[in-house]
Design a binder for these strands. Structure first.
Lengths: 335, 335
DNA sequence: CATTAGCACTTCAACTCATCGAGTGCTAAA
DNA sequence: TTTAGCACTCGATGAGTTGAAGTGCTAATG
């Protein structure tokens, strides 16, 4: 890869990202004038093709970048600083921040709008969660709130309804008993035997204890489920290279399949924070997404919730812009 | 509309629902043998067409139902009881029921799978919500939970962090003060003057009071937002009549637009419960959905949360099956 | 008078064929 | 090493043809 080859590869990629059409030798001479003729460019293009960086849709067409061409571009050729600042401002109403679900959805919508691609956000499973402590709070006559604080700092609450009225003192007493037995227990520690023991100690409302155990199990179980938000699917229709129903169908099927979605991120990031990870085409590891690129990063949201954010677009995406977008989001969180 | 015309209309609609292709006079003679010739059917078809119930895509093709044809079918011709019971069983893990968001998503996924169409669920704005009462619950040293119970029975909670430690007694005291002043206030009742008054009465933590007011305003504000769940978008790809990218794009754009989605339901149901409402084609009132039918019902989910569920599919949808599906869901909720 | 057999007519979909333009690879010359 | 020039390839476009499906209408029928 001498300098001229790199210049030509960069030119092809920039042209193709912009126009989504095979790039001809003539176009490069006209727009990127390297002081050589189109024939020379053609020779170099043939060389770039045998190196695997570009390819021809058919024998008499111009060249389009191959996955490894994009990879080379991202690793060595990309301009870092050519993005106007106005693109980078992610303006999310931070008064929303108290409600994690709305907040993440808002982030996804804004990011999808700015990037013009599809945004996936997952709220991550934190490994095994334990009960940090819990509390029963009387609400109405026949209702109480069970508040669970998990070791991951997550706070969850569930409304309990009971048939007979239960006094504040009893709720307090039950809270104390439950805390004594349940603190630091993980999902495997919540056994039927333990439940029986507590019912024996607090025999006045066995049904309530049953209910609470059910909920606690559920809550710990939920932590294993990954919550996923997808926004901006419609942006795929703006891309000329996905004008076939088959391709759109495949994309949307993948995005509606939670299993596939988690795979996208599994194949990507480690736990390292702040790093932007870029997977191009088959690097994603899902056949259905071979024509896509995912730019993703780990991100800690409010209240210590861990998650991953990814922008998924065509391999010919505006790399600089979207990397900057994710970086700015991350910086915002750091402040 | 004599009997024979009705029979022919019904035949055309059933055929078209099944096959998505224009129905010819010959097909009707072959499959629905009414002991007349195809010429007679043709005469009747011409009559049905001038009544507006069916139409021809072009002059030499068979007939397809028009919106008013479907309407006539739904109102007068539909078989009520030809659906095998196995279709009607909606099996949702009701242990999920404690968590409204997951539960509704689960309902949507199951219903989308059973119907093979797209399902929209909205959790409804309840008109103006008021504070029923609130409670501050100490959690950790520097954290407390603000639990809001709204007049709509909704329970919301928010984690508060404060700089200095606050004693349980102070939390209790502040809870009492807040309840005294905030109970039965709607969003307009939460004024800066009121906040100042409370800060004067409870001067030890003005920042905390500020924070609480901010959250209370947010919470009441959120109730104006409608939460929307959409599942089964991918099912549109199974429908041959939506094989054009343009149509799919229009559909998905509509579904990603919260404003449009709420319009769908606005134009539909009143407050009547248990009634199934069917809007066919332009009855929906959105140009983009002229080729769709929405079958919808009001539904009260757990804990008094009000919502609407709609199945949206092509005008040639399996009406009986989907009506039964929604009915069975509603019955399940009643139990 | 309702029904129907028969036929002319219309339209769509699929196929072929020719043409054109864009772009390449290769050769030979500079 | 570069380049001018040319033959070649391929896809896209549009025109023309054909066949199948289905209708509407007319005239005959019971």
């Amino acid at each position: 890869m001498d300098l001229r080859k790199e210049q030509i590869l960069k030119a092809i990629i920039k042209e193709y990202i912009f126009g989504a059409e095979p790039v001809s030798s003539k176009t490069i001479v006209n727009r990127y004038g390297l002081n050589v003729s189109s024939a020379t460019i053609r020779n170099e293009m043939a060389a770039l093709e045998s190196l695997g960086y570009i390819k021809q849709p058919h024998i008499s067409s111009g060249r389009i970048p191959a996955s490894s061409g994009y990879r080379y571009y991202v690793d060595f050729l990309m301009d870092d600083d050519n993005i106007a600042d106005e693109f980078n401002i992610i303006d999310i109403d931070t008064s929303n921040i108290k409600n994690i679900n709305n907040y993440l959805k808002e982030v996804a919508i804004v990011l999808a709008g700015l990037s013009n691609y599809t945004v996936i956000i997952t709220e991550e499973k934190q490994g095994e969660d334990k009960i940090h402590h819990l509390k029963l709070v009387g609400l109405l006559e026949d209702k109480a709130l069970l508040v669970l604080v998990l070791s991951s700092q997550k706070v969850k609450d569930y409304v309990l309804s009971f048939l007979e009225k239960i006094s504040e003192e009893d709720l307090k007493k039950l809270t104390d008993i439950l805390n004594y037995y349940l603190i630091d227990k993980n999902i495997e520690g919540i056994t039927p035997e333990l439940k029986q023991e507590i019912i024996n100690i607090f025999p006045s409302s066995p049904l309530l204890v049953e209910e609470i155990f059910k909920i606690v199990l559920k809550a710990l179980n939920e932590e294993i489920k990954v919550d996923i938000i997808v926004e901006g699917v419609k942006n795929i229709f703006k891309l000329p290279e996905f004008s076939e129903v088959k391709k759109i169908e495949s994309f949307i099927n993948t995005l509606e399949d939670q299993g596939q979605l988690t795979k996208i991120f599994n194949n990507i990031l480690g736990q390292e924070k702040g790093k932007i990870d870029i997977k191009i085409g088959d690097e994603i590891g899902l056949e259905e997404l071979n024509d896509f690129t995912v730019i993703a990063t780990n991100c800690s949201f409010c209240d210590g919730v861990q998650g991953k954010i990814g922008i998924i677009g065509p391999t010919r995406m505006f790399y600089e812009k979207n990397i900057t977008l994710l970086e700015s989001l991350f910086k915002q969180k750091e402040e």
